[in-house]
Amino acid sequence: MSDVKTIAEPVQEKLVFDRPKSLTKRGFTYCPGCGHGVIHRLVAELIDEFGVQDRAIGMASVGCSVFSYWFFDCDFISCAHGRAPATATGVKRAHPDAFVFSYQGDGDLASIGMAEIMHAANRGEQITVIFVNNAIYGMTGGQMAPTTLENMVTTTSPLGRDPILAGGPIRMVEILANLDGVAFAARGSSSSPRNILKAKAYMKKAFRSQIEKKGFGIVEILSNCNTNWRKTPQEANKFIDEEMVKAFPLGVYKDVFADKSKK
C-alpha cells in the first residue's frame, strides 16, 4: 500500500484513532484477547476527556491488573489484595480535589476485599471503582472466584461450581446499589463493540459521580479470561453474551443523574 499517497494527492490527513494521552507508551502485557486492554483504554480515554490526568491517582489491585500502573500515565499506588478502596479513601481524604480511582478484579473486590468495598461505598467515598469481573482468578491460574458461574469448571471446582457447597455467583453492583452512599452503579460488558461503547457511557457517569461530588461510583464490566476459560477469544466473548449475562444482567442499578420525572 506504499503507493496510496502518490495516487490520492494532496492527502487530507484526519486522525481517527490514537493512543489516549493517559496511557504510557508501554505495550499491554495481558493475554491476547483479554478484556483488560480495552477496559484500560476506556478508563484512559475518560481521564483524557474529563481533563483530569494531572490529578488522577489510580489504585492497582492484586490480580492480573497488579501492574496497571505500568500502563496508566498518572500517579499510582499498588495496593494490598482487596484493600484498594481503603487506600483510595486515605488518598481522597488527603486530596479531595484529586480524581481517585481503583481498578479491581473480582477476587480482589468481591472476595478478600468485600469489607473494604462495602464500607467505602457506604461512606459514599468520592471515588470511582472500575470492577472487572471475569468470573475467575486469572493471575493465580484459574481458581474459582466469588463470581464463578454455577457448574463452571475451574482449577478449584474441577467438577463445576456446586452452589450447595460453594454458593452462587455474587452480584456486587446489585448489592452496592442499595447503599445510600452510592451515586452510580451499573454493569456493562466488554464482549462486543456495542457493549464496549455502552460500558464507556456507564463509566463516564461513574467518573461524573466523583467529579461532581455526588458520591461513590462503580461500574462492573464483564470481561473474558479466555486463557483460563480454555476458550478462544471469540468463544469467550460469546460465553459472556450467552451465559454470563444470565447470572449478571447488564444495566444501570443506581443513577443519581437519571431524570426522575420519567419514572
Binding site: I77, R83, T87, A88, V91, R93, A94, E116
Partner: peptide
Amino acid sequence: GSFIQAESEIAAINMVFGAAAAGV
C-alpha cells in the same frame, strides 16, 4: 485533618497507606 472509624483494623492501616502515599 481527616478521621475515619474504619470498618476493620485492616482497612484502617490501608487508609493510612493511602494517606501516607499522599504525603500526609
